[in-house]
Amino acid sequence: MTTPHHPRQNHLLAALPDAEFERLLPHLGLVPMPLAEVLYESGAQLQYVYFPTSAIVSLQYVMENGSSAEIAGVGNEGVVGISLFMGGDTTPSRAIVHTAGYGYRLKAKLLLEEFNRIGGRRAGVLQHLLLRYTQALMTQTSQTAVCNRHHSVDQQLCRWLLLTLDRLPSNELTITQELIASMLGVRREGVTEAAGKLQRDGLIRYSRGHIEVLDRAGLESRVCECYSVVKIEIKRLLTDVAAV
């Protein structure tokens, strides 16, 4: 049976106290987020923010020659469009869906009104929550840069797979090697070789853009420390944040 959609399936929205959540609820629109949909391009003015529930969005930096690399991923733990409440209307990154699913869309103006709301016993909870998430996203961005510079493609692929699995209800994902290579900023041949090693060792099964993880513990034994750094920081910053 298909699980009914609800905004609380996004962890940030789930962490909001009832009063703040009820103010946002009438303005949250459920939207499909198909594979490869571009939510915004580099330099574009943000009209909406997105709270993914089952989709995963890749934040990518795009070079002048058109090549790109992922700087962070956003799933049901977060929000797409942090530059809006950080003081800017645009961002130098592109946001593109790399795992199809659903999410909730909120007009930028409404988020800013709630972000800047003052007065009341629980004033500033959403602001505090979004700022803590921003710190977690900055950690992910920094760790991705370090990982891409110092660790092998095998380790990068393991990190990416594990972070993706953490945001999904199953151990399967649909994505091409070309898209993975684009996000990691490496040649497709490098991803093919790395995925081949993982498949020969029985950790994954890959076929025609479909990846099934067979041995998660095996991936965790091969991944670099970057995965645990990001996972621990997200958990630390977002656990029971609404009670702070």
Rank of each mutant, 00 (worst) to 15 (best):
R117S: 10
N116P: 01
E114T: 04
V57H: 09
L131K: 14
N65Q: 14
L126I: 09
V80T: 07
G120L: 05
G81P: 00
A95N: 02
G88F: 13
E113W: 09
G120S: 06
L46Y: 10
R94D: 11
S83D: 12
Y40W: 13
L46C: 08
R117F: 12
M86K: 15
V49K: 07
Q127C: 10
I96W: 03
G43F: 07
K107M: 13
G119D: 06
Y102H: 11
G88H: 15
V97E: 04
V79N: 03
L129Q: 11
L59Q: 12
A72W: 12
G88K: 15
Y61K: 13
S68P: 00
R94I: 01
L84Y: 11
A123D: 06
T90Y: 14
E64M: 10
G75W: 03
N65I: 02
A69R: 13
Y104V: 00
G73C: 02
L131H: 12
H98D: 14
Q45V: 09
H128Q: 11
M86R: 15
V97M: 04
S83W: 09
R121A: 09
Q127W: 04
L59P: 00
E41Y: 11
G43W: 11
A95K: 01
N76H: 15
G103V: 00
Q45T: 12
L110D: 10
Y50L: 10
G103T: 04
Y102S: 05
Y50R: 05
A100K: 11
V97Y: 06
S54P: 00
H128M: 14
F51N: 09
Q60K: 09
H98I: 07
Y104C: 00
G81L: 01
L84T: 05
A44C: 06
E64C: 04
L130A: 09
E77G: 08
R121L: 13
L111M: 06
A44G: 03
I96E: 15
G81S: 03
E41P: 01
Q47E: 13
G120P: 04
E77L: 04
P52R: 06
R117D: 03
Y50D: 14
S68C: 03
E114S: 11
R122P: 00
Y104M: 06
Q45E: 12
T91A: 14
V125Y: 03
S93Q: 13
S83R: 05
I118N: 07
G66D: 08
Q45N: 08
R121N: 08
L112E: 07
L126M: 14
I82R: 10
A108Y: 07
I96Y: 07
V79K: 01
A123H: 12
L106G: 04
L111N: 05
V125G: 03
F51V: 03
V74R: 00
L131F: 08
M63Y: 14
